[in-house]
Amino acid sequence: MENIEWLQQQIETLRSKSDVYQEQAFFLALGNAALEQQKRIEQAEGELDGRMWNPRQW
């Protein structure tokens, strides 16, 4: 979770330093994509954990 927070800070810093609208839009989209990717990673980890504890496998 620390990595996504650091990444979001870096992206926000780059976005705030940019004067070009297209770059700002890119960094905003990049931040959104990073958050979505983190959400998918967490879901996959939860699914894996759930499958490992499935009592039907015992």
Score class of each variant (00 low, 15 high):
44 A>N: 10
12 E>P: 04
18 S>C: 08
14 L>F: 13
15 R>K: 14
40 R>L: 10
48 L>W: 02
38 Q>V: 00
37 Q>G: 02
8 Q>F: 06
31 G>M: 10
32 N>G: 15
45 E>A: 05
20 V>P: 05
9 Q>I: 05
29 A>L: 10
25 A>L: 09
15 R>Y: 06
34 A>L: 10
4 I>W: 01
14 L>M: 10
16 S>R: 09
12 E>G: 06
16 S>I: 03
31 G>D: 10
21 Y>L: 06
49 D>S: 07
10 Q>W: 10
34 A>W: 02
46 G>V: 00
46 G>M: 01
32 N>L: 14
42 E>G: 00
21 Y>C: 01
28 L>C: 10
27 F>K: 05
46 G>L: 01
17 K>D: 07
36 E>H: 03
14 L>P: 05
15 R>W: 06
47 E>D: 05
40 R>Y: 00
19 D>G: 12
11 I>T: 05
35 L>A: 10
8 Q>M: 13
22 Q>T: 13
23 E>Q: 12
3 N>L: 12
42 E>V: 02
29 A>H: 11
19 D>F: 04
10 Q>A: 06
30 L>W: 15
25 A>P: 05
5 E>D: 11
48 L>K: 02
20 V>E: 12
4 I>S: 11
21 Y>A: 09
27 F>C: 04
23 E>W: 05
39 K>A: 06
11 I>N: 09
15 R>T: 08
8 Q>D: 14
50 G>M: 03
47 E>K: 06
5 E>K: 15
15 R>F: 07
12 E>A: 15
27 F>I: 04
24 Q>K: 15
31 G>N: 09
38 Q>H: 03
24 Q>A: 08
34 A>V: 09
41 I>D: 00
11 I>S: 05
25 A>N: 13
11 I>D: 08
17 K>T: 07
28 L>S: 15
10 Q>G: 03
36 E>Q: 09
27 F>L: 07
44 A>Q: 14
10 Q>K: 14
30 L>M: 14
32 N>Y: 09
39 K>Y: 02
21 Y>F: 04
28 L>K: 15
30 L>H: 11
3 N>M: 05
